[in-house]
Amino acid sequence: METLFAELAKSLVSGLIMGMVFALVALGLTVIFGVMDVVNFAHGEFLMIGMYTTLLTSPILKVDPLVTLPLAGLVGAALGVMCYYGLVRFLLRGPMVAQLLGTFGLMLTLRNLALLFLGSEPQIVHEGLLVGKSYVFGPGIVLESTKLAAALLSIVSFAVVWWLIRRTKLGMALTATSLDAEGARYMGISTERMNATAWAIGGASVSIAGGLLVNFWPVDPNVGLLFTMIAFATVALGGFGSIRGAFYAGVIIGLIVYFPPAWDALSNFGGLDWPSIHSFKYTFVYLIYFLIMVFRPQGLFGWKQ
């Protein structure tokens, strides 16, 4: 009984932790969508670049990987702004197809730039203050400190972005643009600048998520797609454009995907032994997207229909 409880608690904690990171991954996507109704298919590639930024700069600067997070954020923001002015601005003039095509092209380019310069080998952070350390909470609950730090810093980053959007002048201008771009323009708010800001915020937050993730998740050039899909599912669940929704939905998806006892129970369902049910955990992410979009397109917390 005690081991079952410990097992459950452990799963709950790991689900929550991944959920926080997922929320931060989805945040960037939902901010960009909220402000300009553009879906960025290269979102996961921004995450990948954040991961590599932390991975590569921490040994060079001889600092802990966590210290490089602001740098990852900066790189992500710069990349976001570059993508907006260099590409997305032009895509907006065309039909929706142009956005799909364009951000897919971006995805291919970023992914293969990483392949060309960094190789296809999966890499992970080996040295750091927290790497390899863990805390023991009660019987059986062992928590890797890297994951704990990732969860906490995700919440902090999420809170900073939330504050930025809800409590600052810049954020209000962003919100005004997302509600009524033309109206905001009459009030002297430049749509161009707001769009670029959304891309900066989106790029920065997902890159920081990458910097956190690389502490315990190996990075390779193809890591992005899975996270793009997770971000889509999260944003769909939370409601496209909803920031609060992205947070709750991230946690829900984290719990669903990282709840091993549930998967074990499913595997042994009806006395059958389905050895591979674990590998279905992401399949459920795709299913969630599909089901939510069909049956509740506004998401659980959506305000944009």
Binding site: L101, G105, L113, L116
Partner: peptide, 19 residues
């Protein structure tokens, strides 16, 4: 990867210029 970078570049260009 270089081939796919060029490939991605062409796709972006088409999307931006003549979708």
């Amino acid at each position: 990867g270089l081939n796919l970078i060029i490939y991605g570049g062409i796709i972006m260009l088409i999307a931006a210029v003549q979708p």
